[in-house]
Design a protein around this nucleic acid. Structure first.
Length: 426
RNA sequence: GGAAGAGUGGCUGAGUGGUCGAAAGCGCCUGAUUGCUAAUUAGGUGAACGGGUCAAACCGUUCCGCAGGUUCGAAUCCUGUCUCUUCCGCCA
């Protein structure tokens, strides 16, 4: 969330930002409430001071009569204070409800537009989409041919949208994980396996709503636990309420977890197969940084994503996400879209990674701060996240781009030593 | 899952319902001192929020795991809850 003082001081900019991001929220009402709340707080504190002063005198009172009259005074003051406090809390609650829906400010270079049509292509990967001198299959057809993917069994066992992976595709999945984790630890990211469940309060802190009609989250009945949609949730939770030293920043983590999403309301040809599923494994980059570092680290995350997809020989483009497509917490977001020959009639770009600089939007909610040596006070860190590999979609991109006419798939060179073979499905 | 015990500042650890934001020690910072990489000594040393200031200083409120309650007043009493330790049970 945004700083309340910032909203009060920059009302017009905040309103313009909401419009750019296609978010409807009553900023004026927030400003009205917050101004009134601050005045009320002043009143509460004054009453409390007066009440505290009386109470302290009671201990030193000489006789019973004096004591009783002081008690009456103190009690009356406390009642007035409680009443004022109640009013203050009501204003505070309502202001907070609005504040939670005010999105982060957007980077000045961020393309302005209300939806993904305004996204801007920034760059391409090393590999261009290849031509096929045969009719390429999509990953589902390849998966069925080799018995690598079993959606039918997944549906029977668990439900629609769940799947079993088998055989060489499992080896490929694990090889990708190992490759990503090893690359990331070379670059200073601490490999971290997180729980797949988190408390509802942690989900709310990151900005997810775990229960309710429109939730994307699976929750556990009779417990305040939910299955995580991304390791961002647990990694943020790990540091919530913490204060770090500036010299320890940036902290870079490589989270490994399963991700669970209900994907309510999503269906259709574009969602065929592994593209949109209820469970997948993800290797996630996460960073806590000083404010002045976050732009630079964001570029680093983007570069790592490009390097990883270049390394596995998959063509992609980098997209600068438009204001309306950013989501609440992001200040700026880059997506990598991989070429997927099996999508649409003759191939389409499909999102495979996403990296966001959330500045202090999440850390303010989660109360994650840093302290500078020899300086009073603390500040909020900046948080960033980025996908290394979302395994389900990375698998699609490899199967479809590296398929051969006989239905086999050439394994990317960097994965061959890990898998111990050059071709799968031969 | 059952039983018992414990949760206090960066750490260790004291704390009879009022003078406790909290003793003491360690650590850290600043100064003094001794010519020897350290000792001695004096002082200082938490955070959030609000006010104030160019910035400080400064003033106020809140915080002793968390949330409630009793009371004029709670680190201290009561209730709930979470976490940790030990013992038992179960188990990949």
């Amino acid at each position: 969330m945004l700083d309340r003082k910032y909203i009060l001081a920059n009302g017009d900019a905040v309103k313009q930002n909401c419009a750019n991001r296609n978010v409807t929220v009553d900023v004026d009402r927030f400003i009205e409430l917050e101004s009134a709340r601050k005045q009320k707080l002043q009143e509460v504190q004054e009453l409390n001071t007066a009440s505290n002063e009386r109470s302290k005198l009671i201990g030193k009172a000489q006789d019973e009569a004096e004591r009783e009259s002081l008690k009456d005074e103190a009690r009356a003051l406390r009642d007035k204070k409680d009443a004022a406090q109640g009013e203050h809390d009501r204003m505070d609650d309502e202001a907070r409800q609005i504040q939670l829906f005010i999105p982060n400010m957007a980077h000045p270079d961020c393309p302005v537009g209300v939806d993904d049509k305004s996204n801007l292509e920034l760059a391409r990967g090393k590999h261009e989409p290849r031509g096929f001198n045969f009719k390429p299959l999509d990953h589902l057809e390849l998966g069925e041919k080799h018995d690598w993917i079993d959606f039918e069994g997944g549906a029977r066992t668990t439900g629609n949208g769940f799947y079993f992976l088998k055989g060489d595709l499992v080896l490929l999945d694990l090889a990708l994980q190992q490759f990503a984790v090893s690359e990331l630890s070379k670059r200073g990211f601490l490999p971290t396996i997180t729980p797949d469940l988190a408390q509802d309060s942690v989900l709310e802190g990151i900005g997810f709503n775990p229960r309710g009609p429109e939730t994307q989250i699976y929750s556990v009945e009779n417990m305040n636990l939910s299955l995580i949609g991304t390791a961002e949730i647990t990694l943020g939770g790990l540091y919530s309420g913490k204060t770090m030293m500036d010299t320890d920043l940036p902290i870079k983590l490589c989270g490994i977890s399963h991700c669970y999403r209900t994907e309510a309301g999503a269906a259709g040809r574009a969602s065929r197969g592994l593209y949109r599923v209820h469970q997948f494994t993800k290797i996630e980059m996460f960073a806590f940084t000083l404010p002045e570092q976050s732009d630079e680290i964001h570029e680093e995350l983007r570069q790592i994503e490009c390097d990883l997809f270049d390394a596995i020989g998959v063509p992609f483009r980098v997209v600068d996400t438009a204001t309306g497509d950013l989501g609440g917490p992001a200040y700026r977001k880059y997506d990598l879209e991989a070429w997927m020959p099996g999508r649409g009639d003759a191939g389409e770009w499909g999102e495979v990674t996403s990296t966001s600089n959330c500045t202090d939007y999440q850390s303010r909610r989660l109360n994650i701060r840093y302290k500078q040596k020899d300086k009073k006070g603390t500040n909020f860190v900046h948080t960033l996240n980025g996908t290394a590999f979302a395994l389900s979609r990375a698998l699609i991109s490899i199967l479809e781009n590296h398929q051969n006419e006989d239905g086999s798939v050439t394994i990317p060179e960097v994965l061959r030593p890990i898998m111990g073979k050059d071709v799968m499905g031969k």
